[in-house]
């Protein structure tokens, strides 16, 4: 087992354990903090795949901006941790069974797909994750969607202000 495999399995276990803790934490603030750890683990995976630009953007946008927004909202609302009524145990059990069978179905589907057998992922090499090729592609082939996304941001900002005002 070489270093890359050890890193892959460690990051995967870290991500899955943190994601489970997001689910079972009673306090919403703890859930947000665990979710930030999931995002850091996923950024580690991006670095392992040599997608450096996406790793940095993932940390800045998700862990930096979006989760801070979640924390702001939770602290504004002052949600008591035991105020949230829990679902009945039967409903929880049915939900876990449904999600588990969804996972089993997808894994069985992937296992018998012949195109995916024996394919490998290029780790720590390759240049497409660096900022130079990505910037070239973004501003030549994808310049129209890039400009349209600015309109999307403007409309999201106006919408959030109008909904949040009143």
């Amino acid at each position: 087992m070489n270093t890359l495999e050890i890193l892959f399995y460690a990051l995967s276990a870290f991500a899955i354990v943190s994601a489970v803790m997001v689910l079972i934490s009673k306090n919403p603030i703890h859930s947000v903090l665990w979710l930030i750890l999931v995002f850091f683990a996923i950024s580690g995976h991006y670095i392992l795949l040599n997608a450096q630009f996406l790793a940095i953007v993932n940390i800045i946008v998700y862990a930096g901006a979006i989760m801070v927004l979640f924390l702001f909202v939770i602290m504004l609302m002052n949600v008591k941790k035991d105020k949230e009524p829990q679902k009945q145990n039967l409903i929880k059990f049915i939900g876990v069974i449904a999600g588990g069978s969804f996972l089993t179905l997808l894994i069985a589907l992937v296992k018998q797909t012949s195109q995916l057998q024996g394919k490998t992922v290029l780790l720590k090499e390759g240049t497409i994750g660096l900022i130079h090729p990505l910037g070239k592609a973004l501003f030549s082939d994808y310049v129209v969607p890039f400009e349209i996304s600015s309109v999307l941001f403007l409309s999201a900002m106006v919408g959030a202000v109008i909904i949040g005002k009143k």
């Binding site: 991500a15 919403p28 949230e84 679902k87 969804f102």
Partner: peptide, 18 residues
């Protein structure tokens, strides 16, 4: 797939909208 399924289970079992 595991991470996605954990997300699906969370949507199904939790009642807090956040």
């Amino acid at each position: 797939l595991t991470l996605f399924s954990i997300g699906v289970i969370g949507v199904l079992v939790r009642r807090n909208a956040i």
